[in-house]
Design a protein around this nucleic acid. Structure first.
Length: 278
DNA sequence: CTAACCGCCCGCCAAT
DNA sequence: ACATTGGCGGGCGGTT
């Protein structure tokens, strides 16, 4: 998307060979509950008018989303300074260079701070929006939307960007993203962080450090997150007992699963399944 | 529920 | 001078 020579309302030129008819101007942001920057051309500097409109909307309490390269104007507005942002993996370094005040997370699907949400590229942006629907309207509404879009009902934002892709991936494979994939492929098994670090050919200390740089969390809590996300998915879609779900997701005991499940989601596994199926 | 145990993880610091 | 690595210690929290 280009930001130059715009007369809003009007036609917004794109680099895809067609224009987008825009019916409203920035004044719409004054009443918006959620403001979405769906993309951006990083070669363009956001205009002061746009940045001001974003800042005013944010200060008023509106939620601001920056999808994919849309993270650029969001970062430029200064409303995520000191906090984590996600963006398209190819633009992560550039975003970090241009806006040093934000903390770029190159290995996550999205970063949700409640008031500001940013996501990685294309497919991750869909997952991010699905996450927003889930938050605002509940799991069943999100599942409904996911079904229509032919998406997996829930991918967790802390997953590496490339992990769920089914085909051979051309994206850069960093040591940490490899480690995330390594873990996802053996989620049903139990392993220590030291095992994990050795598989990544690092000392445990370095592994923990690099892991944190790439994902914003520690290996242990990331892993727990993934185990719980998969457990929830199995509960929603399968008929396995809680006991079986626990072993399939790498929990040592069903009691352990129940404890973490309750802490994270506020319900028991059985109650979640019942609520979901109805 | 308690107690002992174990793994996580992060500050610190020396070595590279 | 500066950055990165990795061993160590120990508080903390989960597991048995």
């Amino acid at each position: 998307l280009s930001s130059t020579a715009l007369r809003w309302p009007g036609t917004l030129p794109t680099n895809a060979g067609y224009g987008i008819a825009v019916e409203n101007d920035l004044g719409t942001l004054r009443g918006a509950h959620t403001v979405v920057m769906p993309s951006w051309d990083p070669d363009q500097e956001p205009s002061d008018r746009l940045l001001d409109a974003l800042r005013v909307a944010h200060a008023r309490g509106a939620r601001v989303l920056g999808l994919c390269l849309g993270a650029f104007p969001v970062a430029a507005a200064g409303i995520v300074d000191g906090r984590e942002v996600a963006t398209h993996w190819r633009a992560a370094a550039e975003l970090e260079r241009r806006y040093p005040a934000v903390r770029v997370r190159p290995a996550v699907l999205w970063a949700d701070h409640g008031d500001v949400i940013t996501s990685a590229g294309v497919a991750a942006a869909l997952d991010c929006c699905l996450h927003v629907v889930r938050h605002d309207l509940g799991a069943s509404a999100a599942t409904d939307v996911a079904r229509r879009l032919v998406l997996a009902p829930h991918r967790d934002g802390t997953q590496a960007q490339y992990i769920p892709t089914p085909v051979v991936d051309v994206r850069a494979a960093t040591p940490i993203s490899n480690a995330l994939e390594w873990a996802m492929q053996r989620l049903d098994r139990q392993f220590t962080v030291n095992d994990w670090a050795r598989a990544a050919q690092m000392s445990q200390r370095t592994f923990v450090r690099r892991f944190h740089d790439g994902t914003g969390t520690s290996p242990g809590s990331w892993l727990l997150h993934q185990r719980l996300a998969r457990a929830r998915l199995l509960l929603e879609t399968g008929t396995d007992t809680v006991e079986a779900v626990a072993t399939a997701t790498g929990f040592a005991t069903a009691a352990s699963l129940r404890q973490h499940f309750a802490r994270r989601f506020g319900t028991s596994p059985a109650r979640h399944r019942a609520a979901f199926s109805s």
